[in-house]
């Protein structure tokens, strides 16, 4: 069974592109522009990997991260953010986080990180 990946970013292009490329790699990918809906989805389904933007309206990346860590201790989280501030990175690292990417994201790096996270 293919690995399940959830992508959350309020930029539609990020969702589309990541979904497209990661599907190409053989993963099963769901993508959400609306983080509130994504949170609902997480509550209902366990993913192997969650890739989320940090700064979003209402429910932000930190909320997603906390929710995932609390519910699914073996689900990995990769965080994306448009501007990497030290504060955000430190806060994210305090929580259990697999990787952290400042935007603009290099697809090759992301692919490698995803592979590593899913144990290939």
């Amino acid at each position: 069974m293919p690995k399940q990946i959830l992508i959350i970013d309020d930029e539609k292009i990020v969702c589309d592109m990541a979904q497209r490329i990661l599907s190409q790699e053989g993963y099963e990918v769901e993508a959400f522009i609306d983080s509130t809906q994504a949170l609902e989805r997480i509550r209902g389904k366990k993913f192997d990997l969650v890739i989320t933007d940090l700064k979003m309206e209402n429910v932000d990346g930190m909320d997603i991260l906390k929710e995932v860590n609390q519910r699914y201790p073996d689900t990995k989280v990769i965080m994306l953010t448009a501007y990497a501030t030290l504060d955000a990175a430190i806060e994210a690292i305090r929580e259990r986080i697999f990787d952290f990417f400042p935007k603009p994201v290099k697809i090759e790096d992301l692919k490698r990180s995803v592979k590593k996270a899913l144990g290939f």
Partner: peptide
């Protein structure tokens, strides 16, 4: 940062 990231992703894709 966001639109730049988008353009970069599109180009990479």
């Amino acid at each position: 940062g966001n639109p730049l990231n988008n353009i970069s992703l599109i180009a990479q894709g």
